[in-house]
Amino acid sequence: MKARIKEIIDKYDTDKGFLVPILQDVQREFNYLQREVLHLVSAFLEVPISQLYELGTFYKAFSLEPRGRHEMKLCTGTACHVRGVPLIKDNIGRILQIQAGETTPDLEFTFETVNCLGACALGPILVVDGEYHGNISISKTNKILKKLGKKVKIDEES
């Protein structure tokens, strides 16, 4: 772990100015910004740990909690909202048994809502591991989840 972090930091010439890109790379490598990792970065760069914590909590792209293997982002922008996203959100939440913004305990899924993906004509939109699914419905989300290996109880009507 230590060697890998050193490698990443060396890539940026141990320059404190590249704090955000360094943390991005570190997060990509270790899935999330765990405590020990941040402490190591702090020691290598001679940046106080409080400053790293500040950055880690400020940017949404950073996570101090473990992330799931699959990342689901549901758009809750106005256009998606009026086309029924609240129901879809409840459905995903019920199947994964988590609230939006949480990760399943088995670390398979992280489910988040975002405010607008800028593709309103395709709404409602669900992004799964970087892949955009437009015009989704409850039955479509069920199919997507099934494909990812989640056992979905078939609803009476969908």
Partner: peptide, 20 residues
């Protein structure tokens, strides 16, 4: 000169906090 505390979060969740 020690920077033991900092801010955490932003917007309505911003607060002064110790790391973690």
């Amino acid at each position: 000169g020690v920077s033991a505390i900092g801010f955490s979060g932003r917007g309505i969740t911003r607060k002064v906090a110790t790391p973690f």
